[in-house]
């Protein structure tokens, strides 16, 4: 009998210790594991290394964990929306590794596909290439980038079931299925949790084998960074 369902975020993250390496899904504030971030702030674990495309904003998302100084190192591609992040970075309080977005995604994918490394042209000839092995294929240079190693991956899905199968919605999919494949332990929080058999197997984005714990989240704020609308004619 599979026992993946846990009651809430506190239970799902209870064994995350100081110094852990954690992947967090989401792009900007879209598709971030809100409940788990709140639980990590409440638990107060420190010296975390967070792998996430962005670092939230000052008072939401990973920004909440930066404010409480729980993050030792961020591995991201873009951190422009967070003033506290920029302050901690420029003052040297926070370590950061900025890597190209596609490289970030593909390094997660490599982990989930059981491949130790990938070659990408992104970053050739830039600071990103310093210290990295390069190789030429068909006249073009590529960088060797290693698969990520992380202790936990925490993702947010739209629907999930008791077996850990996940379905994402619209652009909140982003890094979530990739990180789900890449955690030593993967935690999924979902808006809707179903019994096994209630989701159509053809529609599953992440097969349950990649997911260790799943819970139904609550009170999703789903904050929008830039509400942009047009007027009705």
């Amino acid at each position: 009998m599979l026992k993946k369902i846990v009651s809430n975020a506190d239970e799902a993250i209870k064994d995350i210790q100081d110094g852990a390496v954690i992947m967090l899904g989401g792009f900007g504030l879209c598709g971030i594991p809100e409940n788990s971030i709140t639980a990590l702030v409440k638990k107060g674990v420190k010296s975390l290394t967070c792998i996430s495309n962005n670092a939230g904003v000052d008072d939401f998302g990973i920004g909440l964990m930066l404010k409480t100084r729980q993050v030792k190192k961020m591995i991201s591609s873009y951190v422009g929306e967070n003033a506290e992040f920029e302050r901690q970075l420029l003052s040297g309080e926070l370590e950061v590794e900025l890597i190209p977005q596609g490289t970030l995604a593909t390094r997660c994918m490599a982990t989930g596909y059981g491949m130790p490394a990938i070659y990408t042209p992104a970053g050739v000839g830039t600071e990103v290439a310093i210290g990295k092995e390069t190789r030429e294929f068909d006249g073009k240079m590529y960088l060797l980038e290693h698969a990520f190693k992380s202790d936990f991956a925490i993702v947010k899905a739209w629907k999930g079931d008791a077996h850990g199968n996940l379905i994402f919605r619209a652009t909140s999919r982003n890094f979530n299925p990739l990180m789900a494949m890449a955690g030593k332990i993967t935690i999924a929080e979902v808006e809707e949790l179903y019994e096994a058999g209630e989701l159509n197997p053809d529609e599953i984005h992440t097969p349950g084998i990649y997911v260790n714990r799943i819970f139904k989240g609550s009170d999703y704020e789903k904050r929008i960074e830039q509400v942009t609308t047009r007027l009705k004619a």
Partner: peptide, 25 residues
Amino acid sequence: VDADLINAGKQTVTTTNGSSFFDSA
């Protein structure tokens, strides 16, 4: 407006006929 549907500039957008969604990889 849909919080789950944004562009790379984090602005809310819509889909159009023939749109598709996929992961970052």
